[in-house]
């Protein structure tokens, strides 16, 4: 990927450069604006917001809205705060990410190193599944979850997210393993290594970068999902996004904007942290997988 780091050969004058920096700065402000609004308003008392001070820094700094959003705000019928829903999301995301990534790795391995007639069509079928509007599966999925006794449970949501996530994880691992030297696999086969031995000893040790991509992608998508959570979750398995929406849309009582903003940050924090800590590994891993095609 040496080309990827090349800079352009375009030369620009001083005035043009100043203008470019100005535009870039302006858009940086545009992208930062909602985050700024959320952060400053989550640490000020309500009257500072309603009094026209949304853009101001807090005059009386307080963490009260955060405490309230986390542990005592009214969500639906109970004043539980977002805390239980945060754990619901964790309990759903961790197994769903793990299972879909493992399946994606195995599928990618089979589809590149044990190719058979028609494998590309099967992969195409799996890939198209990533892009369908999920409205088309909502009704039968609700029936199916009821039928197998998983309606309204966290495990039901795990199943849903695994099913509609393996297309992407398979895509990532397939592209990554496609450029992995097949000769190594053949040589190991001649030495008598079996299917799982080859996977375990030869492919898996070098799968780190793409596993990171798959995990980040799945984590972000599943954590941020709203449609499936709103459609299939029961009272005690609702994920964070659904709870946040209930908090914000609640029509009873005074609208506590500062609590809403604190709640929004709480819902955004896990994926934001993943992006800041591991974002560059995501891009790097994607690059490694897309060298060819």
């Amino acid at each position: 990927m040496s080309v990827a780091s090349q800079d352009t050969a375009i030369r620009t004058g001083r005035v043009t450069r100043t203008l470019i920096y100005l535009v870039l700065l302006l858009f940086a402000l545009f992208y930062m604006l909602p985050l700024y609004v959320m952060v400053v308003n989550s640490v000020k008392p309500l009257n500072e917001i309603t009094g026209g001070g949304m853009m101001n820094l807090p005059q009386a700094f307080t963490l009260e809205p955060w405490a309230k959003a986390w542990s005592s705000a009214q969500i639906g019928v109970d004043p539980t705060g977002l805390q239980p829903y945060f754990w619901n999301s964790i309990k759903m995301v961790v197994p769903a990410v793990a299972i879909s990534t493992v399946l994606g790795a195995l599928n990618g391995y089979v589809l590149t190193k044990w190719r058979f007639k028609g494998d590309t069509i099967l992969f195409g079928l799996m890939l198209f599944a990533c892009f369908i509007p999920f409205q088309i599966v909502l009704i039968p999925m609700a029936r199916m979850l009821g039928l197998i006794g998983l309606a309204g449970t966290t495990w039901g949501l795990v199943l849903v997210h695994v099913v509609y996530g393996i297309g992407f994880t398979t895509l990532y691992f397939r592209n990554y393993y496609a450029v992995f030297p097949t000769e190594l696999v053949r040589a190991a086969q001649i030495d008598g290594a079996g299917f799982f031995q080859i996977f375990w000893r030869i492919l898996l040790p070098s799968s780190g970068p793409i596993a990171v991509v798959s995990i980040i992608w799945q984590f972000t998508n599943i954590w941020n999902d709203f449609l499936f959570g709103a459609s299939f979750a029961g009272a005690d398995s609702q994920p964070m996004t659904v709870a946040l929406n209930n908090l914000v849309q609640s029509s009873t009582g005074v609208k506590e904007y500062n609590v809403h903003f604190a709640g929004a940050i709480l819902a955004a924090l896990p994926t934001l942290l993943v992006y800041i800590v591991a974002g560059r590994y995501f891009v790097r891993g994607l690059m490694a997988g897309s060298v060819k095609g």
Binding site: T220, L244, A264
Partner: peptide, 9 residues
Amino acid sequence: YPMALSFIV
């Protein structure tokens, strides 16, 4: 970074 956020947020 906005890409990392939920549409609800």
